[in-house]
Amino acid sequence: MAQPATKQPVSGLSEASRRSPIARPPDAWQGAFERAFRWTACGLAAGVVLLLAGVVFEVVRRAGGSMGKLGFAFLTDSVWDANGDRFGILPSIVGTLYTSALALLIGGGLGVTTAIVLSQGFLPRRAELVMKNVIELLAAIPSVVYGLWGIYVLIPALRPIADLLHEKLGFLPLFSTKLSGPGILPASLVLSIMILPTVTAIAREGMVAVPRRLAAAAYGLGATRWEVIFRVILPTARGGIFGALVLGFGRALGETMALAMLVGNTNRFGWSLLSPGNTLSALLANHFPEAGEVEVGALMCAALVLLLITLAVNALGSLIMRRARRGLTGLG
């Protein structure tokens, strides 16, 4: 054993070692392993931060390079023409927000309802858990498969309904065009399916966290089940539910494939649910593989805008969630 002479335990504890034939101080290799392991863990943890910094830096740098050339028109122009070197992303920004808002309306509502059904004793405990797992499977299916399903199942199924809506309610801006195939409505519907598991899981967590005795108190006063849900559970869990909706919205903003396949990739924005449109993510997916140098610069700018929007929304969601958790601690 090569031990440094200054290490007292070796000499000092030798009395003890005489009694314990086995115990001995860490040898040089174990000491080195201890230090190496600690520094590896620390270094790679810092690596995760560098990774994020790298992504942000690289996107900002690339975007910055062409931002000057494109100018402010980039945000206000609605034409994307690679041959004419005109790049405007206004329709994509509005399209991103519009489809995500619709998805939030449908998927968020369904998600919160599902969370209620799965947390308020409507089903036996086992059935609740099985259904919770099934809902999670929704999130496991790759978005490109939803896209495929959207093209060959959802759009054909929507067509008669869309035609009827256009015929009868065409005077409303929402239904002012015919559904030609891909469009805002099918894209938003698929988006809502995709955010539903997120919303359900987080909202359910918030509802489960409401102390039982609050509900018991309301039942004790003679409230019916839904009175308890509307007056006790939902208000108490509102922070968690709101956070779930915001995080679901964040997911919808960044979702790419279902939109690239279903939204129509048309750089024009209209309020009609039945018209085609575009989103930032779909723009990136559709144009990147064949983009020339100038167009790549413009796409980097679009990526930066997408990054900023999702960062802001996710930060808001996390903030709300943290507040919601803190708010509940007083009740716990």
Binding site: A53, L247, G254, M300, L311, N314
Partner: peptide, 15 residues
């Protein structure tokens, strides 16, 4: 950083 990365749209990883 982990939370931000996990909430980042996957296409940005591609970018």
């Amino acid at each position: 950083a982990g939370k931000v990365l996990s909430g980042m749209p996957s296409i940005l990883a591609g970018v």
